[in-house]
Design a protein around this nucleic acid. Structure first.
Length: 229
DNA sequence: GCGACAG
DNA sequence: ATCTTGTCGC
């Protein structure tokens, strides 16, 4: 691609046009290297939103032990606008990735992949930018419609968007844990939906979120692991 | 025009 | 996302 991947000072209209163009570069078929390390990415805020804190956690596959963690802080530059989340979070996330010594073969991002109005959620945008396979793992829905997944861990239903003939599957609504609200999984870049779902399920511990995202979430939110006896 | 709306 | 105590449940 010859066009720049981003322009952080875009007005909403230009940002939307950019998303449409970038989405055309997405690869939704599997193109993964053997996975040795996978990363979880999430963003948090401090000082009432003035400071953006990006966290990246790298885990080893298949034991899911943490092998590297990075936290990067910088001034927040954009407000949160539904559909334009990546313009607010990606600068910090990319800076955090730049501090990483290990290059993971797969990335899970807290947010949507292609389950986005223009098929370019933050997970897709990040994957495209880094040219890495990426998966979106969101805690709630941005767009699309779906039924209620079964009650057991691993149960899921498709997340659909559009009507009639032009209806498309943009992700899955997964019951990652019994008795808990389901999570929204969608491919980001260089990965298919079945493979993305498989990776998320394989990374599930006994919590709602898969390990990569869960740990990044904790780091970004300054939460500390609590112990139970 | 009226809702919906990742984090 | 973030501001926040106690409380219900495995």
């Amino acid at each position: 691609m010859s066009q720049p991947l981003h322009d952080w000072n875009l007005d909403p209209k230009a940002a939307i046009a950019l998303q449409r163009r970038l989405a055309s570069y997405l690869e939704l078929e599997d193109r993964l290297e053997p996975v040795r390390h996978l990363a979880g990415v999430d963003i948090g805020f401090e000082a009432g939103g003035e400071v953006t804190r990006a966290a990246v956690v790298v885990l080893e596959w298949p034991f899911l032990g943490v092998v590297e963690e990075v936290v990067h802080r910088e001034p927040t530059r954009m407000p949160y606008i539904p559909g334009l989340l990546s313009f607010r979070e990606l600068p910090a996330a990319l800076a955090a990735f730049g501090k990483l010594s290990i290059r993971p073969e797969l990335v899970m991002v807290d947010g949507q992949g292609i389950a986005h109005p223009r098929r370019l959620g933050v997970a897709s945008h990040l994957g495209l930018w880094l040219d890495l396979p990426s998966i979106g793992v969101a805690k709630s829905r941005l767009c699309g419609h779906h039924g209620e997944p079964g009650p057991e861990r691993g149960d899921w239903v498709p997340l659909l968007d559009g009507r009639g003939e032009r209806q498309e599957t943009i992700g899955v609504v997964l019951r990652s844990r019994r008795g808990v609200k389901p999570i929204f999984v969608s491919p980001g870049h260089r990965i298919s939906l079945p493979t993305a779902l498989d990776w998320v399920v394989q990374c599930l511990g006994r919590t709602k979120l898969p390990e990569p995202t869960r740990l990044a979430d904790r780091l970004a939110s300054r939460r500390i692991a609590s112990h139970h006896s």
